[in-house]
Design a protein around this nucleic acid. Structure first.
Lengths: 331, 331
DNA sequence: TTGAAAGCGCTACCAA
DNA sequence: TTGGTAGCGCTTTCAA
């Protein structure tokens, strides 16, 4: 039988209440007794039951994180940061990879109130989740939200600015024929990055060389490159909506002997791990995963503290990381 | 105030016990009453408290999965499979990404008995975990274990056979000058794959063209290729210990205009997502993530059912996936 | 600074 | 087929 707080009390010769106090770091326990309790705990190899604690306290000490996939080094990093930030505050992180479209009527982390608060990382079904969370009165924070109206409790990266800066970088290198690859329209980030691109182009008095819209991923980049290659018309520079598309694009070019950045410059977005591993190392826009994680935890904990108060969203700036895939325009 | 089972009882005009029965799908409830209860539940938007349930039942209904990283499509797949298999049985999966070396004295999933059982996916600190789990009497299963002695409760992929098959594939294509890149020695899988390689070579009466040992990842593959390129001596075929090394290696070759598989064949291991995205599409050894996940859940649940009985480990075979990076030896 | 007692919300056991 | 009652292991008053 597992030891309970009762056993510890008996063994230490003190009351259950005192043991509980020691467990929770109350400072109203005589040092000598504290030691007795600690000894008893060690001897019995006792650990408090999470279930009993949650029940008694009315909260679980766990924060949930819902992600669509962790197979993405940006999400992965954010999750790690959140985990660490939370640990510092004595909270546990429960990650749930919700592939998305829910036959699962509603998420289990929500269903049984297993969490005190929730962080949604780039949620696809944002509105459904948010509605549910509001109804349940569960504090939450959105990262990289899609819906403008949810800006109140969200951390986002300024994608417009990211698209703008990326394009500016190419422009400053002397490029005039610049194309853009974008991902799914459903993502607000997709549209914003493109707007940033268009803005920078317009500002420079230029028309986009080409724009393609597809699905984030290596394949789309590869295929687009092949298509363009076949048509014989290539821009001198490309702003890809994410690193994977950029990598796929470069991959296709390399196979045709077209060199990056000698023959063409390519900039990606996200600074995926792969971006700094595959050659040519990719110039890209980095999303500040660490700040994002910290900010999310900060806002969430605040919200949990003063239920009533309304928080303001935070918008972070992405950072241009110059590597090897972009260079001044040839000739 | 949140509705409790008591409120549902009151509202439905039945007892708490009956409500509990309905909640747990007992078939000893009159259909009419069942409906009453269901209605009350809906009206009150009631959900059972996970904490109270766990406390009363003595188990949490949650299975923990400890992984070092999910930023790996193999781990990611296995995790998904486990999640689904578990859901089918009414269990929840709590994933915990434990970067490894624990200042965290002992893992929180273990610490507070938040789980009924634990699955360890390719654990680095296997012995520490296993010792702890045995002590706590928590049922567990290891996937891809490092220590031979833990084979009792483990699912592993036959890495020896994988290394052997991969090499055979190259051999059958007519290659004679075959090199091997391996990862960290700490991993049993690393050593086994190499042994498989060596065995196949020996069987064919051949000496390895070269063998390098480094760290799993794109970089090591890239650097090794560069080194070999510089020395001017390349094998006609390479068996890389994992896909990332293979990809890095190919990446370096491509930059020098050396084509795969025309000039050299490369086979990887794991069938990472990237392997089927980057061109040339990588020939590789696939680990059967689905079977692994299923088997792990199966064994774990069995162990949980009959605490006493000893299970036998399972060893699965990897599968050769032929894509574009290997071809018959030239000339 | 300590402890007795009353829950937290649910399930399990025993009767009816 | 139903319900009363006693816990599950902990925290939180409230008194002492």
């Amino acid at each position: 039988m597992k030891a309970s707080i009762f056993d510890v009390a008996k063994r230490s010769g003190l009351s259950v209440v005192t043991v509980s106090r020691v467990l929770n770091g109350a400072d109203t326990v005589r040092e000598k007794n504290r030691q007795k309790v600690l000894d008893a705990i060690k001897e019995l190899d006792y650990r408090p039951s999470a279930a009993a604690r949650s029940l008694a306290r009315g909260r679980t000490g766990t924060i949930g994180l819902i992600v669509t996939t962790l197979h993405d080094s940006f999400f992965d990093s954010v999750a790690k940061e959140i985990n660490d930030a939370l640990a510092l505050q004595g909270y546990y992180l429960a990650i749930s990879v919700s592939s998305g479209f829910g036959n699962e009527e509603s998420h289990y982390l929500i269903q049984e109130d297993r969490v005190d608060g929730l962080i949604l990382l780039s949620p696809l079904e944002e509105d459904r989740f948010v509605a549910e969370l509001k109804k349940r009165n569960i504090p939450y924070v959105l990262i990289d939200n899609q819906l403008q109206e949810n800006n109140s409790a969200s951390i986002s990266v300024d994608n417009f600015s990211g698209g703008y800066e990326a394009t500016r970088h190419l422009l400053e290198l002397g490029h005039r024929e610049i194309a853009h690859l974008s991902g799914q329209e459903v993502f607000l980030s997709t549209r914003e990055r493109r707007q940033g691109f268009l803005w920078a182009m317009k500002e420079a008095g230029l028309e986009p060389f080409a724009m393609e819209q597809g699905v984030y991923g290596v394949e789309f980049g590869y295929e687009t490159a092949q298509k363009w290659l076949k048509s014989g018309k290539l821009p001198t520079a490309l702003f890809a909506g994410d690193d994977h598309m950029a990598i796929g694009f470069i991959n296709a070019l390399m196979r045709e002997g077209i060199q990056v950045p000698r023959d063409m410059s390519v900039i990606g977005y996200d600074d995926q791990m792969l971006a700094s591993q595959l050659h040519p190392l990719l110039t890209t826009m980095r999303q500040p995963a660490d700040h994002i994680g910290l900010a999310a935890v900060d806002i969430l904990l605040r919200k949990m503290a003063n239920q009533n108060k309304r928080m303001n969203g935070i918008k972070l700036k992405p950072e241009l990381i110059i590597r090897q895939s972009t260079a001044a325009r040839g000739e």
